[in-house]
Amino acid sequence: MDDLEEVYTNIIMEHSISTKNKYNLIEKDKEEHGHNPSCGDDITLEIKFDGNIIKDLSYAGYGCTISQGSASIMIDLLKGKSKEEAIKLIDIFLKMVNGEDVEEAELNMLGDAKYLKNITKMPARIKCASLAWETMRKMME
């Protein structure tokens, strides 16, 4: 398998064309906009809380396979989590895609998102993979 296939996995491909997390929420508490000006990727996250729990989360926008797929995977992971859990998972993910050391146990907490680790082999695309996560991190602040 070459680097290309390790990045463009079935998981990321499926998520990138899936619309299950790509829609506008009917009721939302907050939204956050994220943008990569150099490449044009543009994403808006919408969130609905139930107390401290992320009850619903969706994204809208446009971009490449990596940015769209990563957004969808993130939503699957974070829906139903508490705010604190979400922040912790986002920080692990961002550490991972930026090539920092992450423990095996932490990686496993990321579920499907851990397969995005291979993005480190394609440095030009790291910002695509992290766009949704950075935007979510901002929304949690």
Binding site: G63, T65, I66, R125
Partner: peptide, 13 residues
């Protein structure tokens, strides 16, 4: 049907 960044990455390979 393919985003230009994805095209550029495949071409880069």
């Amino acid at each position: 049907g393919v985003h230009p960044h994805d095209v550029a990455s495949v071409l880069d390979s």
